[in-house]
Design a protein around this nucleic acid. Sequence first.
DNA 1: GGTTGAGCTTCCAGTAGCTGGAAGCCCTAT
DNA 2: ATAGGGCTTCCAGCTACTGGAAGCTCAACC
Lengths: 130, 130
Amino acid sequence: MNIKDVSERTGLPSKTIRYYEDIGLITPARGENGYRKFSESDLHKLAFVGRARHLGFSIEDCRNLLALWGDNGRSSADVRAIAQSHLEQIEAKLKELAEMRDTLARLVHCCAGDNRPDCPILEDLAQTHI
Amino acid sequence: MNIKDVSERTGLPSKTIRYYEDIGLITPARGENGYRKFSESDLHKLAFVGRARHLGFSIEDCRNLLALWGDNGRSSADVRAIAQSHLEQIEAKLKELAEMRDTLARLVHCCAGDNRPDCPILEDLAQTHI
DNA sequence: GGTTGAGCTTCCAGTAGCTGGAAGCCCTAT
DNA sequence: ATAGGGCTTCCAGCTACTGGAAGCTCAACC
């Protein structure tokens, strides 16, 4: 299968698929013309990575998850540890973003948004604690 | 004032302050020895940017906010538009992250996390919709 | 006066995860 | 034969810094 078909079936852009080969996530075969020839296994790996990325896992996490997926002697604890750690990072990020949202929402709400210069948003940013 | 003092007073790393000069957010004066000489105005601008960044504004937003801050003829509507747009992006990101968290939390919860290979996390990632 | 160490400078490279574009080969259809 | 689309590689750029090397400057100490 050529790259475009793989792209359509996995939903990943061709550029991304080439990139994933570059960094060693997959190693598709090559035809005599130099074209990549993707196997069903390549396809499954790409789809796996696509879903892991969709859940926000880093490429390095994806690499480790792929390896565990292919390792019949794995311990589910290892998988769980990766997911747990990632979950904690997401929760931290969520907290940070929620704080930003609260502050911003308050400021936006307070700002008249008219043609006068007075603006609580700028006032807040300019507050000097130096 | 030298860069380290500015770093301590604003909480921004020296590297970051130099970077902000590089990209034109500030233009501190120079002493005869070539050292940057920061004015109070530079300090306030850096603190302003620091707080805007803390609220997640992009550098380009910061640049625009700085310009509006320094423009007495501004309309608060322009400031509000930047903040509103940023707020919407944060809300979108929050939603995305919350979905990730929900899925991940469910998967992590379902995974035994022992020394057996069976793992609902991998099973979920490997689900073939191709 | 000399030396040492900290602080300052510039410049280059690297981070994450792609993405865009250029130059050029290959394949199929007309 | 030629036109087009698809494939290839390679290089550059995106965000917002950050690390490190090489080298100048300054203040302090002997």
